[in-house]
């Protein structure tokens, strides 16, 4: 037994060291994105740039650049020039767009489609919801001259009562020892991001196993939504922060007709002119999906 345990320990040590070296050499582990409190908003550290990595073998490896406001965009909102056609784009992780090179984001594709003197300002943050979008509008958009303001939203965003990042600057984590270890050990980051180590442990401790019974029950638990219940659940206070000329960009099936029919905003459906592709490991569409969004917005702007 003693030999076996020594052998296993040596073997495990070798595996861990080899994996750590491999991950460092090939840059396979995702970075911890540095967050910062900017004007009491929980955003990314301004001025940071690099490559955002996801997937077992770096299937997504895209360039990111954090602007002065802490959003992933190569454009700063202080660059706004009234002579240009200025477009604001507000949304969640999809607009944040780490899954695509910052030079091919929705904003950049839209600029290419509309020609010169068009600048798109992107305000996207993963986990954002309608409260955040309203506050983003208040803080960054309202007092500037924007020609078009698009909000990418889903039903899920509309029912949130609390902001996720706006006014949440206090959520920037303290760098304690555990955090420092996590940030510096590529293997931990790799296992956590790619294999959901943390999420899985959490689920195991809180919920126990995913029994067939539970999976079955979960599948049955989708509620039937009525028009009244839908309208009651929408956060109207947050919506009031947005003016009626805001254009809601939506994907069919992810924004209910009840919302479209009962609110006086403008709406534009994303047309899937190209097949949106993802990498299996990430439900966010990549280049083609971004193209579809940009194309749909370009069509809308050109029709005005």
């Amino acid at each position: 037994m003693k030999k076996f345990l020594i052998y296993s320990a040596v073997w495990l040590l070798l595996v861990v060291v080899s994996l750590e070296i491999s991950l460092r050499v090939f840059g396979l582990a995702a970075q911890t994105m540095p967050t910062k409190n900017v004007d009491n908003n929980y955003v990314f550290e301004p001025g940071k740039s690099g490559f955002w990595v996801r997937g077992g073998l770096k299937e997504i490896n895209s360039y990111y650049a954090i602007n002065k406001q802490g959003f992933n965009s190569i454009v700063d909102y202080t660059d706004l020039d009234n002579k240009n056609l200025n477009i604001a784009l507000i949304g969640d992780s999809y607009i944040q767009g780490f899954h695509t090179d910052a030079n091919y984001s929705i904003g950049r594709q839209l600029e290419d489609m509309l020609g010169p003197n068009v600048v798109v300002f992107e305000f996207g943050r993963a986990g954002g919801n309608i409260v955040d979008y309203g506050l983003v509008y208040e803080e960054y958009v309202k007092y500037k001259k924007y020609d078009f303001v698009f909000v990418l939203a889903t039903d899920k965003d509309l029912v949130s009562e609390k902001a996720s990042f706006m006014g949440k600057g206090n959520r920037v984590p303290e760098k304690d020892l555990t955090r420092k270890i996590y940030d510096n050990v590529h293997l931990l980051r790799y296992l956590n991001i790619n294999h959901g180590l943390g999420v899985h442990f959490n689920k195991l401790i809180n919920n126990g196993p995913d029994s067939i019974d539970r999976i079955h029950n979960n599948n049955l638990s989708s509620d039937i939504i009525t028009k009244e219940s839908y309208l009651n659940s929408v956060n109207e206070d947050a919506l009031k922060l947005l003016p009626e000329d805001v254009i809601f960009l939506y994907e069919e099936g992810r924004l209910d007709d009840v919302f479209i029919e009962n609110f006086d905003f403008k709406f534009k459906k994303v047309i899937h002119s190209k097949t949106p592709k993802d990498h299996g490991l990430d439900a966010h569409w990549n280049i083609n999906g971004r193209y579809n969004c940009a194309k749909s917005m370009a069509e809308y702007i050109q029709s005005q």
Binding site: V15, L19, S22, G55, G56, L57, N194, H195, G280, L281
Partner: peptide, 10 residues
């Protein structure tokens, strides 16, 4: 190592 690096993310 091959197993870890090729384990699907899902």
């Amino acid at each position: 190592i091959i197993i870890v690096l090729n384990n699907p993310v899902s």
